[in-house]
Design a protein around this nucleic acid. Structure first.
Lengths: 204, 204
DNA sequence: GTTTAGTTTAACCAAATGGTTGACAAACTT
DNA sequence: AAGTTTGTCAACCATTTGGTTAAACTAAAC
């Protein structure tokens, strides 16, 4: 596949590995397939990354470091609570269009390997909702929004944004629409989600 | 493992296969492990189910037939819209406590194999939201709830209920709570979700 | 021009894995 | 009771798979 210089072989491997791992998951991914995708010999994978496990971890960390700023940047921005909700919903849809398999990959592998969470959480760039929490508590106290735990609100925001993509196959079936119509629904959600949330919490 | 008579070996296999497949997914599951779990010889798996693929399909269909009534029964009940929302949120949490890996398994394998959806949708007991849709449209027209597409409301309900379990590892990390505290949050959601939704759509 | 260090490949290997076979036993059938 | 079907198992098989190795190639250093 394409590379973008920088130890071209090494980054070609990482790119191909990302593609295969994200689409198939650790267990179903094949080293040979990654090598083929990168257009290089299988031995190169081990030359640069030692083992499947280590290659996987490199991919996972790289993937997580794409998602984290997405969450962090918006949740901890210097904007009002409502703006955060609007921005997140809007941006997340755009993000997923660029990386369709990424969120599912992360969630899946995190479930398969719960200990992994601890490693990741320990890292410096791991998102932190403390600022968001403080903001929510304030708005509740000021009577701008109805009483709600910041944790629950955060889970709601994440759920409404992430699940429609992860559960897309199931939802397509249940809602009984084709790919095109579902894509249209997702498009609408860029504003629908924020409306839905703000309507729920805002005290007029 | 335990069996519950009825061709004891065959059902022992299915039970063990469910357990392993749901926890590890198709790709990572091992036939030997399923046999061990069932306390029988590996050849028996093939005697009763021919191949890994067929055993997997049996498990998947069985799993889906547990989830479907959960959705169907409530969404198409003879109750008011608000009652449906309340009942679903309440029941779903109880369901997941009994079958922790099931929803994730279904969504995961459906993603991995999108063609599978068509097969499943064709079956008679596949949930259908037409009644729910009609109900939502009516309530909008009557001015009981604000204007919202039934499909979007449905997706919101599903997202708010299902995602917190599927993404539990990620959310635990982001919200920064331990297993115990997270379980507590899930407990609260039995009522929190319905409140959140109804607050959003209800016109006073 | 030779050495040297890093890079790449074809061929190979051992373990794991899904699946098969043939013997054997238990349960029906007649 | 003899024969037939059904269920069960240990051993086996072919293929796949992650991983290794030794030799060949490349390009910079001397």
């Amino acid at each position: 596949m394409d590379t973008k210089e920088l130890g071209s072989t090494e980054s070609a491997i990482l790119n191909s590995a990302k593609e295969i791992f994200e689409r198939k998951g650790m267990a179903a991914a094949r080293m040979q397939e990654i090598a083929d995708e990168a257009g290089i010999n299988k031995a190169m994978l081990h030359y640069y990354y030692r083992s499947k496990q280590l290659l996987f971890e490199a991919v996972f960390k790289s993937a997580f470091s794409m998602l984290a700023p997405q969450i962090n940047g918006i949740i901890n921005a210097e904007t009002s609570l409502f703006e955060k909700i609007i921005n997140f919903s809007n941006n997340y849809v755009l993000f997923v269009l660029k990386h369709p398999y990424l969120p599912n990959f992360i969630i899946q592998e995190l479930n398969r390997n719960p200990d992994f969470v601890k490693q990741i959480v320990a890292e410096k760039n791991f998102p932190n909702i403390s600022k968001f929490k403080q903001q929510v508590d304030e708005e509740v106290k000021k009577g701008v929004i109805r009483p709600i735990k910041a944790e629950q609100l955060f889970i709601n925001i994440m759920s409404l944004n992430i699940f429609p993509f992860i559960g897309s196959q199931l939802l397509k079936g249940l809602v009984n629409v084709n790919d095109e119509a579902y894509k249209q629904l997702m498009e609408e959600r860029k504003t629908e989600i924020a409306d839905f949330i703000i309507n729920s919490i805002k005290l007029k």
